[in-house]
Structure formats: C-alpha cells, structure tokens
C-alpha cells in the first residue's frame, strides 16, 4: 500500500532576496493531521517558510507541494482560498461586519446562505452570536484574534497556516486561545503549521517543533526531543524560558 502524500511538502527549496539568502535547501514533509510549530529567532526564515505554502512567497529553486500538488502551478488565488490563513495583526477588513469578515472566503468561493455558517464559526471560536453585526473596531484584541481564526476556518480548509496568531495578546487570553486552537485542530481534522517566536508556546501546543536558524532547519523533533537538543541555536532559544520557569518554580516552592 502506497503511503498518502504529505499535506505539505518542501523539496530542496531556497529563497533569496537580492544577495541575501532567506531560506537554503529546505526539505521537509508535514503529514496530514500534524500540528507543527515553526520557531527560531527573528530573521531565521520562519514566516518565509510559512508563506511559501500559500504562495505569498515564491521559491527561487525547489518545489513546494500542498496535498501533492506544486503550488507554483495554477492560480494563486484559488490555492489560497483552499488554505486557512491567520496572522498576528489579524487584518480584519474594517469596513466589513464580523459576519462579512468571517464569511469572506466562502463568499469568494461563490457560496451563499452563509448566516448559519457564520453562527457556527462564532460558536467554534467561543464568541457570542450577536457579534456578527459588529464592526472590527468594536472588538478587543483577543476577540479580533478569534474572529481571525474563524475567518481562516470558514471554508473548512484541510491546511491551516498561522503566523504568530496570538502575538499581541495578554498571557491569559493567549493561553485560552491556545487551548481552543489545539482543540479545533483535532475536532476539524486540520493540518496546522504555526509560526511563533515563543518556544514555550511551540513546545506546549505542537506535536512537532521545527527550529530555524539563518535560513536552515537546525532541529526538527517532538517537543521532548527539542528540549534535549544540544544545537547552540536551540539552546539559546530555550535558555530564557527555562530560566524563567526555574525561577517561577523556586518562587512557588
């Protein structure tokens, strides 16, 4: 029996900007159903790697495949409508209601009768139904992030791309939303790729963590394996949350 193609695949991918190399010879397979966190210091290439998947960035060499298909072939808009996408600033359209924002992708796909779907999505991200009629300016940061997540899931994409989805939130909201995300990942049978600069977030949410440094993968393992890594870039990332956790543990003891 042939194994099914991974949901997302990078085959010897490099990305350059002028003389700088953002990503170098990345080869990577993300099987269907996995929750992968991409982490690393600023400028390591996390966001570039993520954006290759929905062709917001194009590879200079190599090939990126989603569900076995080369993303460079075909129409980018069609590709993107089939992939969930949520980002740090959320980027809700300020002139649209929450309902319109949430229903944006199904509407682009030509679906109609979206009111019920909007209600369902608001429930999934634990927002009251009457938020549908509000405008983005009337929401708190956490509420906006939930709407962003609902918008990304609206057309039931098999693949979800998240770029620092909880970046600007307070710790409590962040924890709540992180838990909800993990639950949604399971309930909706998603394959999730999440960029985060916060190693703790990566270790606690994902079932696989990839650490990038200067455009290369320096660690790729389950959370336990990452903690055990002795690569200097990984150790540097771990150092500060580890020290923090120890001090907290001492304080609580």
């Amino acid at each position: 029996m042939a194994t099914p193609a991974p949901m997302l695949e990078y085959a010897d991918v490099s990305v350059r900007r002028g003389t700088a190399t953002l990503l170098e010879n990345i080869t990577l397979a993300i099987p269907t159903g996995s929750f992968v966190a991409l982490t690393g210091s600023s400028g390591a290439g996390k966001t570039t790697l993520l954006r290759l998947a929905n062709r917001l960035v194009t590879a200079d060499t190599g090939e990126v495949r989603v569900a076995g298909k080369n993303v460079a072939a075909g129409d980018p808009a069609t590709l993107r409508r089939g992939i969930g996408y949520a980002i740090q600033g959320v980027g809700l359209f300020p002139h649209w209601t929450i309902a319109e924002n949430v229903a944006a992708v199904p509407r682009l796909l030509g679906h109609t009768g979206l009111a019920a779907r909007v209600a369902e999505l608001l429930e999934l991200v634990e927002l009251p139904r009457d938020f549908a009629a509000r405008y983005p300016r009337q929401l708190s940061g956490g509420q906006a992030s939930r709407v962003g997540l609902a918008r990304a899931l609206a057309a039931k994409p098999p693949l979800l791309l998240l770029d620092e989805p909880f970046g600007a939130l307070d710790p409590e909201t962040r924890a709540n939303l992180g838990d909800r995300l993990v639950a949604l990942h399971r309930e909706q049978n998603l394959t999730t790729l999440m960029v985060t600069h916060d190693l703790a977030d990566a270790l606690l949410r994902a079932d696989r963590v990839i650490v990038l440094d200067k455009g290369r993968i320096v660690a790729d393992a389950a959370p336990a394996g990452i903690v055990a890594s002795d690569h200097p870039a990984v150790r540097a990332l771990i150092a500060s949350p580890l020290a923090q956790a120890r001090r907290l543990a001492d304080l609580l003891a």
Binding site: T78, Y85, L92, L161
Partner: peptide, 24 residues
Amino acid sequence: EILDSADGIGMTRRQRLLQVELPI
C-alpha cells in the same frame, strides 16, 4: 496586515483593490 490578509484569503488583485483598498 489588511493587504496581507486580503492576499492570504485568496482575493485577486482586482478584488483586493475594489473590495478592500478603495473602500478603505
């Protein structure tokens, strides 16, 4: 981030201009 999410959810250039950029 608004332009990025318009691209990311799969709007064409024209849709982005007419539905997002010009109204805003």
